[in-house]
Write a protein that binds this DNA or RNA. Structure first.
Length: 426
RNA sequence: GGAGGGGUGGCUGAGCGGUUGAAAGCGACAGUCUUGAAAACUGUUAUACGUUUAUAGCGUAUCAAGAGUUCGAAUCUCUUCCCCUCCGCCA
């Protein structure tokens, strides 16, 4: 949630900033207008309450019964007025919250302005794209030949966009997980496995049910719960209603969870294989930091991602995401795109976001600022460790050999072995 | 799923429908004493919102959350959530 004070004090700046994310000025003015109405009403309501408290407190000391009854009668009238005003306030508050919740986070001033992903900027290319001197296979052909991936049976069991991982693919997944856990714990991250279901109220506070994101969520009607779309969604609330002490920050987590996505609106897109699925496992980095450190932490998370990519020896590019393509909760976002040989293209495998205080305000995650002697909102950042499915694709395709086998990155060999050998050809 | 018992400040734990944001203890912080530390003693010790130059003052709210009864609710009623115990089921 955006800080309403920011809109009150810097309306024009906020308008300019949010316009970059496609928000209309009237929607911001509407929120400000509701805020004004709310505060005006609140003042009269609180004055009434003060009056009520004052007189009520005097009643027990009033010995004269006639006077006493008179006071009570007056209070009965005031009571009705208070109730009436309270109801009006509640109505406006609901409308106000609806309005302010619909506003995305303010993009950092140095973020590239654009309206779609076309305007994102590649800021870095790393690793050499291999020139294959044989006809390459895509990850599904490899996955089937090596008996690693089965989507046919999965579609019978669960429908489109589901898959079975088998044999070395499973070792690869857990090898990746262990590799990341080992690497990141050495770098000060605390491992965590969060719940994969979340209550609507908390999901809302994390800013993940708004701006169209709700269409992407699985909802369990009988239990009024959502399935998470990322470990991020439940790692954040690990510190909901929490006050960090200053020297606990930055607090870094590495989490593992299954992620569930409806992929609504992507019918017909990436239908082959496991690039875009309803269920996949993912390792996620998450940081709570002091506001003044969040940009540094953002760069740090990106450096962790790159470091791990380099250890896997996969070619990738770092993309600065423009305002029009950024996440709802993000003030700044990078993506890492990994080279997918069968597509002759880089595809998004990672994201790395600084949500500043946007989510922290929602879940009420603060820290005690010693100097100011005040509780301030922390900044929260999230970044992909590895999305297993997509990185599996990259490993298989980039490391394929002419004989149909696949070389395993050195760092993962202790978990998987050196090569994946051809098992069958369809 | 069935039957019970509970949710009060950082923690433990009092609390009669009436100036109770809330006793007491612990912890934490500051000070006195001490070469230093401990002990002892003294003091401070929630948060949010509104108003405001103000982390002053004032007002409002907060005893799990929401509604209700009442002139007045931590205290009475209802609903929800959470925790605990026993039974059942279960990885």
């Amino acid at each position: 949630m955006i800080d309403i004070k920011l809109i009150r004090d810097n309306l024009e700046e906020v308008k300019v900033s949010l316009l970059k994310k496609g928000v209309k000025a009237v929607d911001i003015e509407h929120v400000l207008d509701l805020d004004k109405k709310y505060r005006d009403l609140l003042r009269t309501f609180e004055d009434d309450k003060a009056e009520q408290n004052r007189i009520s407190n005097g009643i027990p000391f009033m010995r004269d019964n006639i006077e006493r009854n008179k006071m009570i009668n007056e209070m009965q009238i005031l009571k009705i007025q208070i109730k009436d005003r309270e109801q009006k306030i509640a109505e406006i508050e609901i409308e106000f919250k609806k309005g302010i919740n619909a506003l995305p986070n303010i993009p950092d001033s140095d973020v590239l302005v654009g309206s779609s992903e076309k305007e994102n900027r590649v800021i870095k290319k790393v690793g050499e794209i291999r020139a294959f001197n044989f006809k390459i296979l895509d990850h599904m052909e490899l996955g089937e030949n090596l008996d690693l991936i089965d989507t046919t049976q999965a579609s019978l069991v669960s429908g489109a966009r589901f898959f079975y991982l088998k044999n070395e693919a499973v070792l690869l997944e857990f090898g990746l997980v262990l590799f990341v856990l080992e690497f990141l714990t050495k770098n000060g991250f605390t491992p965590v496995i969060p719940p994969v279901m979340i209550k609507p109220e908390m999901y809302m506070k994390m800013g993940r049910l708004l701006g169209g994101q709700e269409d992407e969520r699985y909802y369990l009607k009988n239990d009024d719960m959502f399935l998470v779309g990322s470990a991020e969604h439940t790692i954040g609330p690990l510190h909901a209603n929490y006050i960090f002490s200053e020297n606990d920050l930055p607090k870094r987590y590495v989490g593992f969870s299954t992620s569930f996505r409806r992929e609504a609106g992507s019918y017909g897109k990436d239908t082959k294989g496991i690039l875009r699925t309803h269920q996949f496992d993912k390792i996620e980095m998450f940081v709570f930091s002091k506001p003044e450190d969040s940009q540094k932490e953002h760069q740090f998370l990106l450096s962790m991602q790159e470091d791990m990519m380099n250890q896997l020896d996969l070619p990738y590019q770092v993309v600065e995401v423009c305002t029009g393509d950024m996440g709802f909760t993000d003030s700044k976002q990078y993506d890492i795109e990994t080279w997918i040989p069968s597509q002759g293209n880089y595809r998004e495998t990672h994201s790395c976001s600084n949500t500043t205080d946007f989510q922290a305000r929602g879940i009420n995650a603060r820290y005690k600022d010693k100097e100011k002697d005040k509780n301030e909102f922390v900044h929260m950042l999230n970044a992909t460790g590895f999305a297993i499915g997509r990185i599996l694709i990259a490993i298989l395709e980039n490391n394929q050999q002419e004989d149909g086998s696949v070389k395993i990155p050195a760092i993962l060999q202790k978990y998987v072995g050196k090569d994946l050998i051809l098992k069958k050809i369809k």
